[in-house]
Computed example of a mutant assay.
Amino acid sequence: MFLPLARRNEPDTWPIIRRMWAEFPDLQLAAPVVQADGVSLKNYELTPSTPLLTNRWGIPEPAANPLTEVLPGALDAVLVPLLAVDELGQRVGYGGGFYDRLLAQCRPGTQFIGLNVLDEPPLGRIADVLPTDVPLTACLTPGGVWYF
Score class of each variant (00 low, 15 high):
1 M>W: 08
4 P>H: 15
5 L>M: 15
5 L>C: 08
6 A>M: 07
7 R>S: 10
10 E>C: 14
10 E>P: 13
11 P>K: 02
13 T>L: 14
14 W>P: 04
15 P>W: 03
18 R>L: 11
18 R>N: 09
18 R>S: 06
20 M>F: 14
21 W>A: 03
22 A>P: 01
22 A>K: 11
23 E>F: 02
23 E>G: 12
24 F>I: 00
24 F>L: 14
25 P>A: 04
25 P>K: 05
26 D>P: 00
27 L>N: 01
28 Q>P: 00
30 A>F: 05
30 A>E: 04
30 A>W: 04
31 A>T: 08
32 P>E: 09
33 V>K: 04
33 V>G: 03
34 V>R: 10
34 V>W: 01
34 V>Y: 01
35 Q>V: 00
35 Q>C: 13
35 Q>D: 04
38 G>S: 06
38 G>Y: 08
39 V>S: 11
39 V>W: 00
40 S>W: 02
41 L>H: 11
42 K>M: 00
45 E>C: 12
45 E>R: 15
46 L>M: 13
46 L>R: 12
48 P>F: 13
49 S>M: 02
49 S>Y: 03
50 T>S: 14
51 P>G: 09
52 L>Y: 06
52 L>A: 04
57 W>D: 03
59 I>G: 06
59 I>Y: 01
61 E>W: 06
62 P>I: 11
62 P>Q: 09
65 N>M: 05
66 P>W: 11
67 L>C: 06
67 L>M: 09
68 T>F: 07
69 E>Y: 06
69 E>P: 03
69 E>D: 03
70 V>S: 08
70 V>F: 09
72 P>Q: 11
75 L>I: 13
75 L>S: 08
77 A>M: 15
79 L>E: 02
79 L>Y: 12
81 P>D: 07
81 P>Y: 07
84 A>S: 15
85 V>Q: 04
85 V>P: 01
85 V>S: 04
86 D>H: 12
86 D>S: 08
86 D>V: 07
88 L>V: 00
90 Q>W: 11
90 Q>D: 05
91 R>I: 07
92 V>E: 12
98 F>C: 02
100 D>V: 09
102 L>A: 05
103 L>H: 04
104 A>K: 03
106 C>N: 07
108 P>C: 12
108 P>H: 13
111 Q>P: 00
112 F>G: 01
112 F>S: 00
113 I>F: 10
114 G>R: 12
116 N>K: 05
116 N>S: 15
116 N>L: 15
117 V>H: 15
117 V>L: 14
117 V>K: 13
118 L>M: 02
119 D>A: 15
119 D>R: 08
120 E>Y: 01
120 E>G: 00
121 P>M: 01
121 P>Q: 03
122 P>R: 14
123 L>V: 13
123 L>E: 13
124 G>F: 01
124 G>E: 12
124 G>I: 01
124 G>N: 09
126 I>Q: 10
127 A>G: 03
128 D>E: 07
128 D>T: 13
129 V>W: 08
129 V>Y: 01
131 P>V: 04
132 T>L: 04
134 V>L: 02
136 L>R: 12
137 T>Q: 10
137 T>I: 07
139 C>S: 11
140 L>Q: 09
141 T>N: 05
143 G>H: 10
143 G>K: 08
144 G>R: 12
144 G>S: 12
145 V>S: 09
146 W>V: 01
148 F>I: 02
148 F>R: 14
